[in-house]
Amino acid sequence: MKRLLPFLVFMGLVGLFGFGIWWNTWHDARYVPSPLIGKPAPDFALPKLDAPGQTVTKASLLGKPYLLNVFASWCVACAEEHPVLMADARQLGIPLVGYDYKDEPDDARRWLREHGSPYDLVIADQPGRTAIDFGVYGAPESFLIDAKGVIRYKHIGPLTPEVIAKELLPAIAAAKREAP
């Protein structure tokens, strides 16, 4: 037994390091939980991408839940997410609001023309100042905001059919139930 002890200690270390490798394969180190979940969305007043003269505010979108999807024409992962949104946006049952993040409006308009627009409405934050209030640190990000303007759910990174089915749709159902 005593002779086995160093071997057992060694196996313990192997187990520990193995756990570390396993943990890091599925755990995304870039994922940081947002402190804004369950809190009112920050106030914003941003121009429409298609009509820069018109301003959209947080207050003007109150009354029904919507999904705010942060994207940009320069964002590679957004292009990856885009076909998923094109296919599944209608299935969400709530408006999809695009949030064009730190983008040239012309580039964004061209990008949406070429790829098609899954959005019911697109607001543009060219300076990126409002995005700081939302705690945005990398596009794409999606915020589910309920009828009372509270952030119910946030997804960082591209939405996939799995994430939509397992996380987003249940969160939408809960938001509709609790704040109709």
Binding site: V32, S34, P35, L36, D133, F134, G135, Y137
Partner: peptide
């Protein structure tokens, strides 16, 4: 900044 981006 913590209010927006968490303790991280």
């Amino acid at each position: 900044l913590v209010d927006r981006y968490s303790d991280f």
